[in-house]
Design a protein around this nucleic acid. Structure first.
Lengths: 242, 242
DNA sequence: CCAAAAGTGTTATTAATACACCCATGA
DNA sequence: TCATGGGTGTATTAATAACACTTTTGG
């Protein structure tokens, strides 16, 4: 294909010595929704774990663990999520690799993922000890740089909700348009016009109407299904052809 | 802040044993533009390095190196770029962390960055030995998973060109609107309407008109400067408040 | 004067938004 | 029947795109 350009000396990549104590951790920001008593719509919540050992002992931190030598990053994130919530994620995507030198007393590079799980799953499953759910918005003073990480993940969630179909990760297989809209309203923290939302949703081509209805206190609402064949873009570079 | 939810047993994070030979590397996809003899517009090019040792010896690979214990990921990427091109990047952003188990004979997690440098800098600087520039489009059969990585970076470049102002990373301080348009045309591989492009560019509010002109064979074109105070979003989670 | 790129104006099409209104059901 | 959310229609606005046209320079 190409033309050679210039000649000089190439620095040989330095092999890591034994005292290169850089370790790789994987953490996951697990988002879900929870209906708060007074609030007009659900809020974004996530599980945190209390640290039981030295760096930042007693503080809340993202669930995670060391990367096992025999597992991929994705697998490590899934495992983390499984251990923390007992669930498989309905959505899982790499967020960012954090590697500031002073982010931990020892040198740790953290590959952070973010995931979505459905609210009904949260209610149904017993979480391990030392785990509690917090409002993402008001997560502050976490261990390490996890406060920043959570806020960045939250920003990405909101950003992505604008152009992607991730909201389905927070819903069951069948849902009404009002339920879908409520998810977006919860993420974006603002009201959306039901009429316009309906049209946009229908125009997206990703919704399959069923012939079932959600019967409630008023006019029954049609149930839709998400067309998972038309999968969301950017679940990572290796999944689809870009 | 929040309410506790459930109780069970928390798995203690496993400390990495001595045989956890997972090493962290940092690689960088360095994009620039080059005007090809026949082509109607410049093409996206990037520098590759020939591997001089065992895994994939003799094949072309992304420039990179091991993460030093005392440098941040960003710093490692900058250093890589400096060693390969002798330049500081006009744009540098983390792309993705690659960590499949079998992507290398030994276990290596690669934090990959992508960067932009200006074409005139490419011409001016002598690249080290074993380094050559290739068309990004036709980069195939690289070492490791670098082929996929390059294509993903290219996808991200094109994607980001649609909503961001990165194109300025490929231009000098002062430029005409035609030059700016050509950068976008090169990245997106399609013609853009000069009239509409002008209006969009002016409406963006990121261009500062100077009173200087590029005098050429025809009517002089006004030179603009990029307003770097209004910086691009998403240069990473730690830079700005999201 | 002419070629060619700089720069302006005008219109058509499409997408986003606001909001009035009808429909169907449980109570 | 009435309150309420489900669902439709429509008008206004903004963004995008297509393209005709005028301006200014070097040769």
């Amino acid at each position: 294909m190409m033309t050679r350009t210039a000649i000089e000396t190439a620095p040989a990549p330095r092999a890591p010595s034994a005292d290169d104590a850089t370790r790789v951790a994987v953490s996951t920001v697990i988002f879900s929704l929870r209906r708060e008593p007074g609030a007009e719509r659900p809020t974004v919540v996530l599980p945190l774990v209390t640290r039981t050992r030295d760096p930042f002992e007693g503080m809340w931190a993202l669930p995670g663990g060391w990367l096992d030598a025999s597992e991929s990053l994705d697998a490590a994130a899934s495992r983390t999520l499984q251990e923390t919530t007992g669930l498989a994620p309905s959505y899982l995507e790499q967020l960012y690799a954090f590697g500031e030198v002073d982010r931990s007393p020892t040198r740790v590079v953290s590959i952070v993922y973010w995931a979505l799980i459905r609210p009904d799953e949260v209610d149904a499953v017993a979480a391990p000890e030392n785990t509690a759910w917090f409002e993402a918005e008001s997560c502050t003073e976490l261990a390490f740089d996890h406060t920043q990480i959570v806020q960045y993940a939250l920003w990405r969630l909101r950003n992505k909700a604008g152009y992607s179909r991730i909201a389905h990760g927070l819903l069951a297989d069948e849902f009404t348009l009002a339920e879908l809209r409520e998810v977006y309203e919860s993420i974006l923290r603002r009201r959306l016009d039901p009429a316009n939302f309906r049209r946009q949703a229908e125009a997206s081509g990703t919704l399959i109407p069923t012939d079932r209805f959600r019967t409630g206190s008023h006019r029954p609402a049609r149930l839709y299904r998400y067309d998972r064949d038309l999968e969301l873009a950017d679940r990572g570079p290796l999944t689809t052809s870009h």
